[in-house]
Design a protein around this nucleic acid. Structure first.
Lengths: 202, 202
DNA sequence: TTGGAAAAATGAACGGTGTTCATTTTCTTT
DNA sequence: AAAGAAAATGAACACCGTTCATTTTTCCAA
């Protein structure tokens, strides 16, 4: 085990340490309310040190962005065991909503926040593209068994994604309080039920 | 015309002056990228002066928030001349999307941004509530002519709002680039067409 | 074991932010 | 014209992301 290897490992560990602290703080106080100095203090290093491991604050955002997508994709794993394409589609929606409900802040970070994402490399969106491709494939499978005939896959997937995202986004940004007496989560559940009913009839 | 009256008017004019500058800058560079100092410079006053007319930056946000809703509600006016309830519903959706497309930043401010909204008074959301009530009434009218039977109005309105908001939000926050070759605006149009088709069959 | 080079960490400094408030300027009234 | 009230000022405070000259630690060859 060479020194170089250890150095490598330590560098990786330090990146983890920073990311862990950042994640905790972001999920606690929000992205913009968390400063580099806050993160530095949490790990008991000076602010400057952070910049030896992440080029800028956006880089940390980026890392958590990827992490969120990996998490979401992992949750989608069991879908491969759902034989019926349409059932797979609805299950997918349920998982998506579950993710949004249980990981509000990750969801926010992934789909709502103004993506700073220095577009120098396009690896920002590979995970997102992967997830979207997943949806499109399920829709193609649905078409193969006679559903959604004649619909363009891009248009259809955008429509479905929009509906799911709309619920999640209104939830994340507290717009459900427009229905003051109703519980947001049941509102979402009922709304989702209407959606699947509608898709089934379509 | 008493002095007090003029004073009153001048105070109102100053608030307008600040709001106009703020609106221009917000729509130009975004809310967070616009500082009080920027606004002050634009109207050729010192930063401190702003605080004599608005308690804090969020207050200016709030004022524009209301302005946006008044704008949206004004655009909905012509709906009263659409006799058929379902046609009125789809027209409403078209207007909503048109508003979002043409007033990206207002839309963002009204529906996406983390609403700071010091909840001390609840007058923050009266315009929003008004707009939502509008949608609910159209849905009740639809039910009166036999559509959407047995569906809860809250659930239904939330579902429909979610879909519209989803498209608008993905558009505003540049998530349409997931469909790299497609034009976001046509993607929205096609998606909206699918939605109305589906609602019609429902 | 030690000396010097390389790597890592530091924290002061820069130019920005929202907000406050003692002070100055302007306007109004007597 | 003088006094009092209202309006405007801008320096100051405590924060922000980021940089970089300096210090500390680690490494390896002599």
């Amino acid at each position: 085990m060479s020194i170089a290897t250890r150095k490598q490992r330590e560098k990786e560990e330090m990146r983890s340490l920073i990311l862990d602290a950042a994640r905790t703080l972001f999920l606690e106080k929000g992205y913009f309310e968390t400063s580099i100095r806050n993160i530095a203090e949490k790990i008991e290093y000076s602010p400057g040190t952070i910049y030896l491991y992440y080029k800028e604050k956006d880089d940390i955002f980026h890392a958590l962005h990827q992490e969120g997508f990996r998490k979401l994709i992992a949750m989608m794993e069991p879908l491969q065991f759902v034989a019926d394409p349409f059932e797979r589609l609805t299950a997918m929606g349920r998982i998506y909503m579950e993710f949004a409900k249980n990981n509000k802040d990750f969801y926010d970070l992934m789909f709502i926040m103004q993506a700073p994402m220095n577009m120098e490399q396009d690896d920002c969106w590979v995970e997102g593209d992967h997830a979207l491709e997943h949806l499109k494939q399920v829709l193609r499978d649905c078409q193969a068994v006679g559903r959604f005939q004649g619909k363009d896959i891009d248009d259809l997937s955008f429509f479905i994604w929009s509906t799911m995202h709309g619920m999640a986004a209104l939830y994340c940004r507290e717009r459900c309080q427009a229905y003051d007496d109703k519980d947001p989560l049941t509102l979402i559940d009922n709304s989702f039920k209407i959606f699947t009913e509608m898709l089934a009839k379509f």
